[in-house]
């Protein structure tokens, strides 16, 4: 089989055993426009280089539980937390952290008595969208989205605080910059996206991006999809993907739009390559999850403890 693939120019994967159809991807495609050059190229960044002195890492977590229902309407208790760990020398320390607990409910579907009863609970109430038709699963999904939005808000607040209070410092954010809000050109914020559900490129550009060799990045492009504004982005291959699959070791970097994003793309890539050590294994996402981000997550999980 491997020979067959190779003989006609294919690549050999890991051949991992699968059993289930992957759940549908919510938004598989986005759009993009070229920023750096006219097409997407694979650029060798020149190997790892030491990260900047002042750098911090941000991540957030969320949890929720269906506490009960008024009729069919779910009443959800949610928890969102985020933290920034700052690196001093080689030590990570907690620079700032926020956590909150709240109720999520579709107020429009409650009676005044029900609303009043919830207000007596000593937790803030977060409104969530109400579907036109009740659905036991979709209703909960809508509430969960509200929890996620709270998490993004908490993350955005922490990011804003960090940017304001540590202006020279870099901030590496787990995931897309979409939720962080508008950032100036040159803001030292880096989004590190590990999941590739939404593909912004297509055709030859996409092929270049998804088959990047180790230590290479793509040209910078602007992703335009969604209500979340314009963000500059490029792909970076942290580990060789041969013998695995296309997405192994592939991250997508996001930066605030502007000239700096292009000018700094290779530099940022180089230090992110240095962040491959220490390895975040045994975490299954070790090929894309850098150790400091995992440490933020570990801290948040420990802090949440057995939240329920």
């Amino acid at each position: 089989m491997a020979d067959a693939l190779r003989s006609a120019g294919g690549t050999v994967g890991a051949g991992a055993l699968l059993t289930h159809v992957a759940p549908p991807v919510a938004s598989p495609f986005g759009t993009a426009s070229h920023v750096e050059g006219e097409c997407i190229l694979a650029i060798d960044v020149g190997g790892p280089a030491p990260p900047p002195e002042a750098v911090a890492f941000l991540d957030g977590i969320q949890r929720y539980a269906v506490e009960g229902r008024f009729g069919l309407v779910p009443v959800v208790r949610g928890y969102a937390a985020a933290a920034v760990l700052e690196r001093e020398g080689t030590e990570l320390g907690v620079a700032r952290a926020l956590q909150e607990e709240f109720l999520v409910v579709a107020r429009s579907r409650l009676t005044p008595d029900q609303e009043a009863a919830l207000e007596d609970v000593d937790l803030p109430i977060v409104e969530c969208d109400a579907a036109e038709r009740s659905h036991p699963i979709l209703d909960v999904q809508l509430a969960a989205k509200a929890v996620q939005r709270r998490r993004e808000v908490v993350e955005a607040e922490l990011a804003a605080a960090h940017i304001e209070e540590a202006p020279g410092s870099w901030l590496v954010v787990d995931g897309s910059l979409g939720g962080i809000g508008a950032l100036e050109d040159g803001a030292r914020v880096v989004g590190l996206v590990k999941s590739h559900e939404t593909q912004f490129l297509e055709g030859a550009d996409l092929e270049v991006a998804l088959t990047l060799p180790e230590g290479h990045r793509t040209s910078v492009f602007a992703r335009t999809a969604g209500a979340r504004g314009r963000v500059f982005s490029f792909y970076l291959r942290l580990w060789p993907w041969q013998e695995h699959d296309l997405l192994h070791g592939l991250v997508r970097i996001e930066r605030p739009p502007g000239e700096a994003a292009v000018a700094e793309a290779s530099e940022v890539s180089r230090w992110l390559l240095a962040e491959r050590a220490p390895l975040s294994a045994p975490d299954g996402r070790w090929d894309r999850l850098i150790y400091p981000i995992r440490q933020v997550e570990t801290f948040l999980r420990a802090q949440a403890g057995g939240w329920w």
């Binding site: 080689t90 030590e91 990570l92 240095a274 220490p278 400091p292 440490q295």
Partner: peptide
């Protein structure tokens, strides 16, 4: 793996917990 087999290579930027 992280040091790519080279014990004399660059130190990792973060110390493990």
């Amino acid at each position: 793996v992280a040091a790519e087999g080279d014990p004399a290579g660059d130190r990792a930027p973060t110390r493990r917990t």
